[in-house]
Nucleic acid binder design. Structure first.
Lengths: 144, 144
DNA sequence: TGGCATATTTAGAATAATTCCAATTAGGAC
DNA sequence: GTCCTAATTGGAATTATTCTAAATATGCCA
């Protein structure tokens, strides 16, 4: 195995050594930065390829590890569409996903202020909602 | 390969020969009946095991084929939770899924009459919605 | 600063749901 | 019955993801 350095000093400019309780290694930084730079909901493999531009030596396994760590610490969301590979996004504001069937692009859509999803549903009263996942498929209006 | 019969006559009681535009072979009938009997959102493998009770010779590949055909013809819905195996349900009424984190049971929840999801979201006007998929995780109230 | 315990990274193997394939079998029309 | 096409089948292939064991890096404390 080739000897590679893993960052040495903690803060090399961009991030503090710890973000959201997660120690920021060089690899985690690279993965996180990829997700902050382009918010187009890349797959783990997409992230891997992009992270390699920053860090030639990073491995796919590490990308998976880093993504898992980032998700667990709430810095990143993991999004699943049907049986497709998971996608990741760093948009932490509450939002739902709109899958444009024409372009394949995934847009983040926010709730209108004050909107409460629970009001629309026949949930037994007293139900505790911990997580909501909403995906919409369709087509955006023609031109723009 | 052992010779097995595939149903011979068309209507053997339960279903017409064609349902929703889909020719009902013995295997498709068995798979469909499994989903009509127990609406607990079984996986393909669950369906396979249950279908075997009706038809010893059915294969897993066929169960996948049948499920695909049933889904394509709109007789059955395919439901995906995160990265878990797909689940299938024959409840065609519009509903969302509530995943009880304590019991693992998946409940079908309907919208309140007149509820319009689009009203809650910041969708560009003119957006055409073709499909909505909503999953909620949480806990139902205590006793009950 | 050096040494140690622990956490992280890594390459590659393993896993699991699903799809594909090529061959057999069944169903319907004539 | 015969022929044509559709459906079924077992097993191999695929693919995203997880696991494993070894190498490496980091933080801490003397």
């Amino acid at each position: 195995m080739v000897s590679r350095d893993q960052g040495g000093e903690h803060t090399d400019g961009e991030f503090p050594a710890v973000v959201g309780g997660l120690r920021m290694t060089k690899q985690r930084r690279a993965v996180y930065q990829v997700l902050l730079d382009d918010r187009d909901h890349p797959t783990a493999n997409d992230v891997f390829r992009r992270a390699q531009d920053r860090m030639l030596s990073i491995s796919l396994a590490t990308v998976y590890n880093c993504l898992e760590a980032l998700v667990e610490h709430g810095l990143v969301n993991q999004v699943n569409f049907d049986r497709e590979p998971s996608r990741f996004c760093s948009n932490l504001k509450e939002h739902v996903h709109f899958h444009d069937e024409k372009t394949g692009v995934i847009h983040d859509i926010t709730f209108k202020p004050g909107a409460k999803l629970e009001d629309l549903l026949e949930l037994p009263k007293g139900t505790e909602v911990t997580e909501v996942e909403l995906t919409i498929r369709g087509m955006l209006p023609k031109q723009k």
